[in-house]
């Protein structure tokens, strides 16, 4: 369906925070068709809606709240440690460069300290960027292997159990013996849980990897290799973080093989 004012109204309502109910699926379909106007209205509208919160004067939180929150965090690392650089030659060079920079500004007056803090966060930032880029490249290579296979197949997955609104599709290739799951509207899980993908082979579910959904509820996930090429169906369950060998949690996505 092409863009019209009704979709703009739905996007505006959602950006402002009004639940859409049944109309939400309609808007999502429209967005999935790639309507740039509504996508932009939703994204910019959400930013703009936050301006409504600026209207109120700030309040002073009760002093004990800060201590209560900070003591509830659980284990933390020493503040000296920047984000861990990934392995690999480039990362090692980067880490060495960052270390040299730190030495270079090691003198201890206040200005230097501030600059050192800044460099530390920049080196952490660079390490994280590199790690992200390396991961993305590796993922793309794997995805390309699946998606460009001559025998690529696709199966739609529908929401089930506690997450009827979730949806997804799996692209897989019998020769690559891997699949790529694309999912949307997955719910936030407690920190000790993760989604686990299952491939049904000879009628039995076989673990195909664990993943987290993005904050937007979307997930793009490359499976682990299937033990044999005859995938019959796919499902996603909620399992303890790290995954389990056979499914224990509720099914939230499942395919409907022909």
């Amino acid at each position: 369906m092409s863009h019209n004012e009704r979709y703009e109204e739905l996007a505006a309502a959602l950006a402002l925070g009004s639940p859409l109910g049944a109309e939400r699926a309609e808007l999502e379909r429209h967005l999935a068709e790639g309507c740039a106007v509504c996508e932009e209205l939703l994204a910019d509208g959400r930013r703009a809606a936050s301006a409504l919160a600026a209207e109120m004067p700030e309040v002073a939180p009760p002093p004990e709240l800060r201590a209560r929150i900070l003591s509830s965090l659980g284990p933390s690392r020493a503040p000296e440690a920047p984000a861990r650089p990934s392995s690999g030659f480039a990362a090692r060079i980067l880490a060495a460069a960052a270390a040299l920079l730190l030495v270079a500004v090691g003198l201890d007056d206040a200005k230097m300290r501030r600059e050192r803090e800044d460099l530390r966060s920049r080196s952490a930032d660079l390490a994280v960027r590199l790690q992200t880029a390396e991961t993305a490249l590796a993922e793309r290579t794997l995805r390309a292997r699946v998606l460009e296979s001559d025998d690529v197949q696709m199966m739609l997955l529908g929401g089930a159990g506690p997450q009827p609104g979730a949806r997804g599709r799996v692209f897989w290739s019998p020769t690559a013996r891997r699949g790529v799951l694309v999912a949307a509207s997955l719910a936030e899980l407690p920190p000790d849980r993760q989604y686990e993908l299952w491939v049904f082979i000879e009628g039995k579910p076989v673990a195909a990897g664990v993943f987290d959904a993005e904050a937007s509820g979307r997930a793009l996930f490359e499976s682990t290799p299937f033990p044999n090429p005859k995938a019959q169906n796919f499902a996603v369950t909620v399992e303890p973080r790290g995954g389990v060998a056979s499914p224990t949690g509720p099914i939230v996505l499942v395919g409907a093989p022909a």
């Binding site: 919160a53 700030e58 309040v59 002073a60 939180p61 709240l65 800060r66 929150i69 900070l70 965090l73 284990p75 933390s76 690392r77 503040p79 440690a81 920047p82 984000a83 861990r84 966060s121 952490a124 930032d125 994280v128």
Partner: peptide, 21 residues
């Protein structure tokens, strides 16, 4: 970035900057 690296001081700093709002 520091919070992600589990630096509680960084979270405290975020708290001090934004908790009132």
């Amino acid at each position: 970035v520091r919070v992600e690296a589990r630096d509680a001081d960084a979270l405290a700093a975020l708290y001090d900057r934004h908790a009132g709002r």
